[in-house]
């Protein structure tokens, strides 16, 4: 199985004069492992994910995937964003096929692969419509299929479910975790949502801000498939909340039920 990631001494600032966004990030993700990265808004989660994908060059340090230094984006490690960003002039089928087309793969092979993926996301009957006529959740499923088409070893997910309603979100959370586990894909999920982190990952990394750094790490030793409100789930969740208290100030993280969990503001 491939898709191991190592991030070595990565620091980043967007310009010479700007404050450092990330300082000395070190982390290792095993091939096939599902990891969540959780932290407050602005702590540098997206920046770290962009660096892992090769979309942004780190100011210092490097990222290696399967031992090779990442120097540019590749379809082997694929990123998914908060917005589906489908191409509105292409049909669903063409959107899903895009990565394969870029790779110069033959029409026949593309066609059968796309059929398979459309079946996986249950959108076979929408194959020939344009993205505009799909709901937000359906669009995000198409984006998932588009990411999976090139058979990536790593999926980097930047809050891909946060714009969706609760029901759609929890269905997709289950789907993505299951698919990654079945296909042995390494997942790094950035999220604000503690429940999502517990629900989908083997391990949760907690980030603090100013500058962004990883301050804690919590293993999620729960069996699959995971149920929200059982005792074990609550136990892990409490642990995570505690780790979060370490990250001072302002807004506590949002949770699936929309509630706010009491983290005392140290400023108040």
């Amino acid at each position: 199985m491939s898709g191991s990631i190592s991030v070595d001494y990565v620091s980043h600032q967007f310009s010479e004069t700007a404050e450092a966004v990330l300082v000395d990030i070190n982390l290792n993700v095993k091939a096939g492992e599902l990891v969540s990265l959780i932290g407050r808004s602005g702590c540098g989660k997206s920046t770290l994910l962009h660096i892992m994908s090769g979309l942004v060059d780190p100011s210092e340090g490097c990222v290696r995937i399967d031992g090779k230094t990442v120097i540019k984006p590749s379809a082997r490690w694929n990123m998914m964003f908060q917005k589906a960003s489908l191409f509105p002039w292409m049909s669903i089928r063409e959107n899903v096929a895009l990565g394969l087309k870029f790779a110069g793969i033959g029409k026949k092979e593309i066609s059968s692969k796309v059929d398979e993926l459309l079946d996986l996301i249950s959108l076979t009957e929408k194959a020939d419509v344009k993205p505009r006529s799909l709901s937000g959740g359906q669009q995000q499923r198409v984006a998932l299929a588009r990411s999976l088409a090139t058979s990536p070893t790593v999926l980097l997910l930047d809050e891909p479910f946060s714009a969706l309603d609760t029901f759609t979100r929890s269905a997709l959370q289950q789907d993505v975790a299951t698919i990654c586990r079945q296909k042995g894909i390494t997942m790094v999920l950035v999220t604000h949502d503690i429940d999502e982190a517990v629900l989908m990952s083997d391990r949760v990394l907690v980030m603090d801000q100013n500058p962004g750094r990883i301050i804690d790490e919590i293993a999620v030793d729960l069996s699959w498939p995971r149920k929200h409100m059982n005792q074990d789930f609550q136990r892990v969740r409490e642990k995570l909340l505690l780790a979060f208290k370490g990250t001072e100030k302002t807004e506590p993280p949002r949770t699936l039920d929309g509630g706010r969990h009491g983290v005392e503001s140290s400023a108040a």
């Binding site: 994908s53 979309l55 984006p73 694929n78 588009r146 090139t150």
Partner: peptide, 13 residues
């Protein structure tokens, strides 16, 4: 949409 550049670079364009 600038995201289209990100998405397509990601897909290996």
């Amino acid at each position: 949409d600038p995201d289209w550049f990100k998405v397509s670079r990601n897909l290996g364009a």
